[in-house]
C-alpha cells in the first residue's frame, strides 16, 4: 500500500478479484447477488461452532478476502441446505462452502485423517460418518 495504511484499510486488488472469480467458478454461484440480509446465518443450525457467520463468509468471498480460506465455517457446515432454501436471492450457499473447502483441499490440506482416530472411536463411529467425512474433508 502506497501510503502505508494497509493494516487499517482493506483495499480490493487484482488478487482479490482472482480469488472471488475462483470461488464463483468452483461454486457456479453468482455471489454478487447477495445483499447481506443474514437469512443464511439465522437459518444455520451450527453457527455456535463457526468463527465466521455464513453471511460473512459470503461477504468475504464477494471481496475475495484470503481470510475466508482459513475460516472454520466451511468445515463446520454440514450441508443441510437450510441457508440455500431460505436465501432470497437464490444463492446456493452450501455450494459456496463446498467451493471454499475444495480450494483449501487443493492445497493438499487434509482436515480429517483416519490415523488420528483411536481404535475405540473407529469402532463406535458409524461407517457412514467416516465415509462422508473422508469424502468431504480430505484431498
Amino acid at each position: 500500500m502506497s501510503n502505508g495504511t494497509s493494516e487499517l484499510y482493506f483495499t480490493f486488488r487484482p488478487e482479490n478479484a482472482a480469488l472471488k472469480a475462483k470461488i464463483e467458478e468452483l461454486s457456479g454461484e453468482n455471489i454478487d447477488l447477495c445483499f447481506q440480509c443474514g437469512a443464511c446465518s439465522s437459518s444455520c443450525p451450527l453457527t455456535s461452532e463457526m468463527d465466521l457467520l455464513p453471511s460473512t463468509v459470503i461477504r468475504y468471498a464477494q471481496l475475495g478476502m484470503e481470510e475466508v480460506l482459513g475460516s472454520k465455517t466451511p468445515w463446520i457446515c454440514i450441508t443441510c441446505f437450510n441457508c440455500e432454501i431460505r436465501c432470497p436471492r437464490g444463492i446456493d450457499i452450501a455450494n459456496v462452502m463446498e467451493a471454499i473447502r475444495e480450494m483449501v483441499l487443493r492445497t493438499k490440506y487434509d482436515k480429517f485423517t483416519l490415523d488420528e482416530l483411536t481404535p475405540e472411536e473407529l469402532r463406535e463411529l458409524p461407517q457412514i460418518a467416516l465415509i462422508s467425512n473422508q469424502r468431504k474433508l480430505t484431498a
Partner: peptide, 22 residues
C-alpha cells in the same frame, strides 16, 4: 488523492473493516 487517482475511504460494515478503494 493518490497519484492520478483518488482513494475512497469508508467502512465496510458487513465485515467491520475500513476500506479504501482507488
Amino acid at each position: 488523492p493518490e497519484g492520478d487517482r483518488v482513494l475512497v475511504r469508508g467502512e465496510d460494515m458487513m465485515i467491520n473493516r475500513m476500506v479504501e478503494n482507488p
